[in-house]
Simulated assay, not measured.
Amino acid sequence: MSKPETVAGLGRQELASFVTAVLAEDLGTGGDVTTNLTIGDGLRLSAVIATRQDIVVAGLELGVAFFRQLDPGIKIELLKSDGERAARGDVLMRLEGNGRAMLSAERSALNSLQHLSGIATLTREYADKIAGTGCTLLDTRKTIPGLRVIEKYAARMGGATNHRMRLDDGVLIKDNHIALCGGVERAVGLAKASEHEIQVEVDLLEQIELALAAGAERLLCDNMSAAMLREAVKIVGGRVPIEASGGVRLDTIREIAETGVDFVSVGRITQSAPAADIGLDYSPA
């Protein structure tokens, strides 16, 4: 089976740098002193990584990369794929290799797998809530610094569509831009120098026609109630796509999606997802 061009959204060089940096953070300059003192250099171990809760898997190949970095000859069998659901007790991968290397890589691999699977699992809950509405779930830039690429990868595995990865991915004129420019017309006018679609944030219904007249090509309705969103959809009348955002929760997202908006963005899926309960168990090889 050919290796993917990217792993958890990371290219080959990005992956190598990420794995090296994470292992260096955990191993320090002295290495895993406990393992090196207590585990024989030639000991081989078998292990299984299994989930202890129902999850959506994300980050398997990233986890593999940590083990391979310390033991290039390790044998690994993947039993699940990223984006796949796994039930409590399911084995995600089997490993056999150098005991010292496996123990030393364990925490970095599990941290990554638990974090990304946690994001994918929560994202899937949100995506399932709006299934059949025709509304698309988006993530946001509310990510842990340095982890955006892999966190947004996990969101995709859970069923979300990525919004802007970086600030250079699109134009989003927010209230601060409008205030500092002296009005929405001037802000949009200046933004037309870009080749990007121009999205304008509105938080009041009366701002909608002003934004559209200025040339907005997409609206972000921020912190609007479901009733306001329904009215916003009527006002826009299909002229531009509408995204709803701000304080969206699992118990409110369905009602928001059913207002007729095209997109709903949720910061919680990357910002507040709990880590998945995934463990590793050893036995002599």
Rank of each mutant, 00 (worst) to 15 (best):
G146N: 08
R166M: 15
V184K: 02
E243T: 03
L229A: 09
L204P: 10
E209A: 10
V149E: 04
A191T: 08
A227L: 06
N176E: 12
S225A: 06
M157Q: 13
D203G: 07
R254I: 00
L190T: 08
R148L: 03
Q271S: 01
G146V: 06
D169R: 09
A154T: 06
S225N: 04
A187N: 02
R164C: 07
V188C: 05
G237Q: 07
R254E: 02
L205T: 03
S272F: 05
L220Y: 06
S245C: 07
D169I: 04
L167V: 10
P145L: 11
V200A: 07
L220M: 12
A214H: 00
E258Q: 12
G146I: 06
G267Q: 01
A226N: 11
I178A: 07
G189W: 04
M224S: 14
C181Y: 13
D175V: 04
G170S: 04
E201Q: 08
G189V: 02
E206C: 02
D203E: 10
Q207K: 09
L212C: 09
N223K: 08
A214I: 02
G158R: 03
A226T: 15
A214S: 04
G182E: 09
S272V: 08
L190Y: 15
F263D: 04
V236H: 03
S194G: 13
A191M: 06
A155E: 02
E201N: 13
R148F: 07
L250Q: 05
L180M: 15
C221R: 03
A227D: 15
N162H: 05
D168A: 13
S194I: 06
I173Y: 05
Q271T: 05
I269Y: 01
H196L: 04
G237F: 12
T252H: 09
M224G: 01
I173D: 01
A187G: 08
C181N: 13
E243H: 10
D169Q: 12
G246P: 00
I208H: 02
I208E: 00
R218C: 15
V200T: 04
I269M: 00
L205Q: 01
E185L: 15
E217W: 06
I269P: 03
I178W: 01
V266T: 04
N162D: 09
G238V: 06
V266A: 06
L190Q: 14
G237Y: 08
L147Q: 11
V171Y: 05
A257S: 04
V233K: 10
L204W: 12
R156K: 14
I253V: 15
L219G: 05
V149A: 12
I198C: 12
G246V: 03
V261R: 01
G183D: 10
G158T: 02
